[in-house]
Design a binder for these strands. Sequence first.
DNA 1: CGGTATCCTTTCGGATACTG
DNA 2: CAGTATCCGAAAGGATACCG
Lengths: 120, 120
Amino acid sequence: MHEGCTVYQTTQYLTKKWALLVLFELYKGGDDYTRRFSELKESLAGITSKVLSQRLKELEEEGLVGRRVDAEHFPVKSEYFLTEAGLGLIDVIKHLKQWALTYKIDNIDCGNQNCKDCIL
Amino acid sequence: MHEGCTVYQTTQYLTKKWALLVLFELYKGGDDYTRRFSELKESLAGITSKVLSQRLKELEEEGLVGRRVDAEHFPVKSEYFLTEAGLGLIDVIKHLKQWALTYKIDNIDCGNQNCKDCIL
DNA sequence: CGGTATCCTTTCGGATACTG
DNA sequence: CAGTATCCGAAAGGATACCG
């Protein structure tokens, strides 16, 4: 087993609380996979600013999420979006969904392979 | 997003410390994907009995790992092995490895798609 | 051999308050 | 609006000892 393997590291920050949900919330963000901080916070019922901020920072450092800030005006406007790598990871999780549909009979299948709501 | 979704739950116990390593150690266990408790403990340098025992119990409850016990003789002999579902999950993680090879340039690729050592 | 029990440290995340 | 700072409780994991 190689030291510091990327896959293992990936699983470590992806499985922190809210991380996957944040990713999927961006995925649901329309054609550009973009959401604002406040939108994410509203959609993810129960998440605190602190944790949302932490997760976004981690995901950004890992290259899964990008960030655009408009500091020209007030209030500041900042947008988060899925990068190509982040989008690629969504595909991996779709494989995981297929696995779950095969071996975990209690899983709910909405019938739509690309459903963005029940991919998780 | 469906409540209690299996994929999300899966990520929660798979990302506990040592869980993936235990799974891959079994995967490396030969044609029958079987290892004994003490073998696992030796291979996973640094893991404690307590944690190994916990992880195995969780993975067994989730149906990824099976267990055979021979309590007839002393000392007791117990074997753990990958179930079909567990093996299916290995495939999912191979997809994750491909993702990492594409987007994480610092990942080490030994060149063998099915390499059991550096899949992680 | 294959674990369990206990204690202890560290980490994580929730609550709340505050700021440019 | 988009965060940061501080404090606190819960949970996870490591160290060590013990048992059938």
